[in-house]
Amino acid sequence: MGFQSTYRKVVARIDLEYILLFIMLVASGYMIWETFNFGISSAATFPRLTAGFVLIGTLLLVFRSYLPDPLYSFVAESADLINVDDDELVGDEEPADDADDGDEDDSISTVGRPIHDSLFTSIIAVGYGILGYAIGILWASPIFVFVYGLWFKLSWKVILVLVVVSILIGLGFYEALGLRIDRGNIFFTEGIL
């Protein structure tokens, strides 16, 4: 199983927290840099203040294990009554998931699929958004729930119900709000209904 082992290896090396910190670091850095292009200087005050805060905080969190003690406890330790396990803060050996979620056992997926259920859900949700943009949300919805149902091995009866429900939700919005979700921006741009 070449894919499986590669996937496991890759996932084991990725720590979601570093992805988050990386996103925040890049975003705050960009936002600070961009403020120097603003024509109106007062518009830059608040972005610099907040992005600066994010930047410093992110750097502290990235380098927390190298910090001297009083600062380390400020950055990493919990201030309230409920204490967080220390190994949760430094131990990054776990592949992506926290240890405390007991019901996520060692197998990657609860339905025996080769990738994590959460990863799949994230991917398909984004795919649904893109498909909705392309062909209209009303038509993308049943496709999305159908694929979801197949992946999670739901019974045909349940999948059928979900498809119907998703169409009803779309039609409800279409009717009640006059929302033009029967048309996409790439296909069916004239609308179907």
């Binding site: 709000l177 006059g178 033009r180 048309r183 921006n185 741009t189 004239e190």
Partner: peptide
Amino acid sequence: RRELLQYAGAASVAGMTGIAGCL
């Protein structure tokens, strides 16, 4: 407030633009 749209939505409107306008 939105009631009108309910009726309007059912009929197609000439020259309707795609909602791409927001882009």
